[in-house]
Design a protein around this nucleic acid. Structure first.
Lengths: 225, 225
DNA sequence: AGTACCGTCAAACGGACGTTTGATTCAAGC
DNA sequence: GCTTGAATCAAACGTCCGTTTGACGGTACT
């Protein structure tokens, strides 16, 4: 049967074509959008035949899903691990900054540590949240499901005085600021004239977390509607 | 020469075809993205012939530009007017909240007051900042040029103790939160289970402005890099 | 009546797209 | 040595795209 292929995949030698396709798709999806990046351009960049994309993934959508899953899976795993560490502490020692860091750091870090592909993925991921493609958005929401399911109660516990509606809005703003910080790297570098260095992961995370923590700690507006 | 047409345009009777095209394009660009919305779908929705789009606008890109300009122009004019009012006050009476409101309110308000088209434009506009289409992004940046040129010094004056790099980052986060609040309406309504009502313009603006004001007022992180 | 022009229309253009097909190569199993 | 099946390849499939064309009615001006 497929013993040969199974043995080869299980051994060390991974499929070059598949990985090349993922790398190329990641960059071009980020650069031109999902609709704007054609399979012809992707396969050409990967140095493989056009039909290889369908042979290995089945469709363009499945390729996109694989691109997202490859990076999102470890990112979200790390987020949950940091959340576990945060919650393992005695309640008195937990700080909102730390909770926010658990939420923000892995995304920004993974997105920027890989020199070039990470840069591409950061753009793609930052855009995905509000992408017009239902596909891209649904992929992100699927992969993000457990993260929000675990983080929302943690935020609520860290801010017991905040009305739930206010909390949800602030998480919403947080996601927006984070996504923009990831997707809009060229923008701030251009506007700041190079003063703001987006390659400084720790600095970016720290600034973002402090900004958000202060926003979360703001007094709640009177709850009119 | 073109006296007839000029007279007709100058008179009350505006061109129905042109406006129908703008309305339809606004909704479909927002719903499916610029690349995903075909001129065939747009003209069909507008109830006009396919060739009318090129006759009246010249190209798909020019149609997109017209869609954006129609809404962005009054929004940005209002932003600058609010900034003028803010700066006309004696310095002692100015508040950061008010400055942020001048920046945020017109976008959210115009984006949501129009019952349905505004909803579409809000999505489109919120996405435009990081859109993969160079066209859409460049349109927004063009229309936004004067706004940032006037608001950045105002922010710097309102927060004289904040290092410039920190200020730029926080403005960056602000833009992200604002864009996400506009583009991600369906998202927060779904996540909150309807608890957060995105049709409540005043409430949204107020929550966002307070959140951002607290973030801006946070102590600056040590300026490492 | 005649001219000029605007707006609309159906039809077609060439090109790019995602996907499918069938042939070819090559290493592993009997 | 022959078969099997995974992997790659060039070529083609049908569809949809943005744009162009040329003809047709209608209105305003001479």
């Amino acid at each position: 049967m497929g013993n040969a292929a199974a043995a080869r995949n299980a051994s060390e030698a991974v499929n070059h074509t598949k990985e090349n396709l993922l790398d190329a798709a990641e960059v071009l999806f980020a650069e031109h959008g999902v609709a704007g990046a054609s399979l012809r351009a992707i396969t050409a960049r990967a140095g493989v035949n056009l039909a290889a994309a369908h042979y290995h993934f089945g469709s363009k959508e499945a390729l996109l899903r694989a691109v997202m899953a490859r990076r999102l899976r470890p990112i979200n795993a790390r987020r949950l691990a940091l959340l576990d560490a945060y919650e393992a502490q005695p309640a008195a020692e937990r700080s909102l900054v730390e909770l926010l860091r658990a939420f923000v750091d892995p995304v920004v870090r993974f997105g920027r540590e890989l020199p070039d592909e990470g840069r591409a993925f950061a753009q793609l991921c930052g855009r995905a949240m509000n992408a017009p493609d239902d596909v891209l958005r649904s992929i992100l929401i699927d992969e993000l499901g457990e993260v929000v399911r675990r983080f929302l109660p943690a935020f609520a516990r860290a801010l017991p005085a905040l009305p739930r509606r206010e909390l949800l809005w602030r998480v919403h703003f947080t996601v927006g600021a984070m996504a923009h910080a990831m997707a809009g790297r060229r923008l701030i570098e251009a506007v700041s004239g190079g003063l703001c260095d987006t390659r400084d992961v720790d600095g970016t995370v720290e600034r973002l977390v402090r900004f958000l923590a202060a926003g979360f700690a703001a007094p709640a507006a009177e709850d009119s509607p």
